[in-house]
């Protein structure tokens, strides 16, 4: 006799239907999205349909405008993000090297790290005008603080742990820095970069929605105003794909150099 005792774990192993649950869910979602507007249950005007979306995607991707929008947005993002990385890493290491400097810089930086950088956009426009510069600036600010803050947090932690060991072996300041600080900060830097990518991308789109005459954000806004939901979604999905790709790239870097334990 096999006694019918329940397995102890609340989560039985995955197999069969369960494995395909995600695919099925997406298919059901798409089917409902296609059928409900056709039946008039929801207003197609506001939701569009996957088939319309597919048609719109073909049209949009074939247009030169899409690619120039994409190029503009990516340019704004790349310059702002690139500057942030180039400035933030040396800044973080420099400030981080001294506990006092760290203490002084931490509070204002933390304040700007926590506050949504988008609220500075009107101020940046006042300073830099409505052109490229203000958008690059807001991406810069959005990306800069996560990198610096995480570097500082990393150095803070390392000071506590590793450096004591280093001192025992009589390492010089420079040796400590290159052999202990630099490699040990890597996971923190990657956490910072992950946040920076997300916030930078969000900021460039938001800035384009706020004030712009071209770019992906502008186009999303424009198609929203004219209720071209199909085209709006094509552009929004473009943003998702960019976001997904970038987070995968960071994920690969993290697999190589990151510590999964840091969060």
């Amino acid at each position: 006799m096999r006694a019918p005792v329940r397995a102890r774990s609340g989560r039985p192993a995955a197999h069969g239907l369960e494995r395909w649950a995600g695919v099925i869910a997406v298919l059901v979602f798409l089917a409902l999205w296609e059928i409900l507007p056709r039946l008039g249950v929801v207003n197609e005007f506001f939701t569009s349909r996957p088939s319309l979306l597919a048609v719109a995607a073909v049209e949009v991707l074939a247009s030169a405008q899409y690619w120039s929008d994409l190029a503009l947005t990516m340019q704004e993002f790349a310059v702002g993000f690139g500057l942030a990385v180039v400035v933030a890493i040396p800044m973080g290491l420099l400030i981080g090297a001294s506990p006092i400097a760290r203490g002084i810089a931490m509070t204002p930086m933390m304040a700007l790290y926590i506050a949504p950088s988008m609220i500075l956009l009107p101020l940046l426009i006042l300073w830099l005008g409505v052109g490229l510069a203000s958008k690059i600036a807001v991406v810069f600010i959005a990306s800069y603080f996560p990198i610096v803050i995480n570097l500082l947090a990393g150095m803070d932690e390392i000071d506590g742990r590793l450096v004591r060991v280093g001192h025992v072996f009589g390492a010089s300041r420079l040796q400590l820095f290159s052999t202990i600080h630099l490699p040990a900060t890597m996971p923190h830097l990657l956490v910072g970069l992950r946040l920076a990518v997300g916030r930078g991308l969000l900021s460039v789109i938001a800035a384009e929605i706020f004030v712009s005459s071209a770019g992906i954000g502008y186009r999303i806004q424009m198609f929203g105003n004219s209720l071209r939901i199909d085209r709006l979604l094509v552009y929004a999905l473009t943003v998702s794909i960019i976001g997904y790709t970038m987070s995968r790239v960071i994920g690969l870097l993290e697999e190589r150099w990151g510590a999964r334990s840091v969060s």
Binding site: A21, A25, L201, I209, G243
Partner: peptide, 22 residues
């Protein structure tokens, strides 16, 4: 979890602001 996975992934990678005009 598996049912929600694709939607969560979508939300996670999409800067939510892109949905604001919607």
């Amino acid at each position: 979890e598996r049912t929600l996975d694709p939607f969560v992934w979508f939300l996670y990678s999409t800067p939510a602001i892109a949905l604001y005009p919607l």
